[in-house]
Simulated assay, not measured.
Amino acid sequence: MKSGNQTHASEFLLLGFSEKSEIQFMLFGLFLSIYLVSFTGNLLIILAICSDSRLHTPMYFFLANLSFADICFTSTTVPKMLVNIQTQSKTITYEGCLSQIFFFFVFGCLDNLLLTVMAYDRFVAICHPLHYSLIMNPQLCGLLALGSWCISVMGSLLETLTLLRLPFCTNMEISHFFCDLPEVLKLACSDTLINNIVVYFVTIVLGVFPLSGILFSYSQIFSSILRISSTADKYKAFSTCGSHLSVVCLFYGTSLGDYLSSAATTSSRTSLVASVMYAIVTPMLNPFIYSLRNGDMKGALGRLVPLSIRTITGLS
C-alpha cells in the first residue's frame, strides 16, 4: 500500500481469528460444517413449504422468506472467509468490502423485519382468529414481504452510499472476518459524524421500531392467552408462536450481545465472537427450532427427504 492518506482504497485486510495454521485448519472445518448445515437446513425448509400445500399459509410463507434471507445472510460473509483461510490470504477488494457491507445490512435488516411481520401474523391468529383469513389475505402477505425487502434495500443503500464519501488511511487492517461497518469506519481518515448519524438513524428505524412492534404483539398475545380458561387451549395457542418466539429471542439476544460487547469494550475479539453467534450460528439454528417445535414442519420434512432420496436414486 502507498504511504500517506488516500482517497480510494484498493483493498482491505481481514485479520480474522488467528495467525496459527493449525487453528485456521480447525476453523475452516468448523465454519464449513456450520455453513453447510445452515444452507441445507434452510433450503429444506423452503422446499418443504413449497412442496406441501398444507403449508401454503401466511406463517409458512414468511418462514420461507426468512429461510431464504438466512441463506443469503450467511453466504454474504462465510464463503469469503473460507476462501481466505484456504488460500492463506486476508485481502478483500474495496468493491468487495462495500458489497459485503451492503448485502450484510440488506439480509440482516430483512431478518429483523420478517420476524416483526411474523409476530404480527401470530398476533392476528391468536387475538383475532375469526378474522385471520380476511386480514392475512394473500395480497397483504405479498405486500408485507415486498415492503420488508424494499425497506431493507433502501436502508442498506443509505448506509453504503454514505461510506463512498470517506477517504481511508494507510492502515487497512480490519480486525474481523468480514467487512463490519463499525470496523471499517475506524479506518477512515476524515470525520465520520454523518456516517454515525446514518447508522443510528437506520438502527432506530429498522431495529428499535421493529423490536417494539414484536414486543407489543407478544404483549397482546400473552394477554389473550391468559384469558383462555382451558389449559389445553392455552398450550395450543402458545405452541403456535413458540418457535417464532424462540427465534426472536435467539436473534435479538445474540445481536444485542454483539452491540453491547462493542459498546462495553474496545476489544475487537469480543465483538468478533459475538458477531459469529448472530451472523453464522443463529441462521444455522433457526431450521432446527422450526422443525423440532412444529409438527406440521416435521411432517413435511419427513415426506420431502425420502422423496428427494428416491429422486436422486432414480436419476443416478
Rank of each mutant, 00 (worst) to 15 (best):
S308D: 02
V124Y: 04
V83Q: 02
I85G: 03
S267L: 07
G257N: 05
C189L: 05
R165Y: 11
E95Q: 15
Q100I: 14
S3N: 11
S246G: 13
S275L: 02
F25P: 04
Y35R: 06
L14Q: 03
L250G: 03
T74C: 12
I194K: 07
N42W: 05
T265R: 10
T87K: 10
C189N: 01
Y132L: 08
L113V: 10
L193C: 08
R310M: 12
I85D: 02
V247Y: 09
Q100R: 02
S21C: 11
G16R: 00
K234T: 04
C50F: 15
E11D: 05
F12W: 14
A232N: 07
T313D: 08
M1Q: 14
S99T: 13
V184E: 01
L304D: 01
F107P: 03
F107T: 00
S75F: 15
Y200I: 14
L55S: 06
P287A: 02
S230W: 03
C141M: 00
L185P: 04
G147F: 09
L130C: 07
V273D: 00
H56W: 09
Q139D: 11
L193P: 01
W149D: 05
T311W: 14
F61K: 07
Q86N: 10
L134I: 12
K298L: 14
L164R: 09
E183L: 00
S133D: 12
P129I: 07
F168M: 04
F216C: 04
S99M: 14
T76I: 06
P129W: 01
G155T: 00
V78S: 02
V124I: 07
S212Y: 13
L301T: 01
I135H: 10
P79H: 05
V199F: 15
M297K: 00
F102E: 03
L66G: 01
F31H: 10
T254L: 13
L55E: 07
L250W: 03
T77K: 15
V305H: 04
G96E: 02
L166S: 00
I221H: 06
L82A: 09
D70V: 02
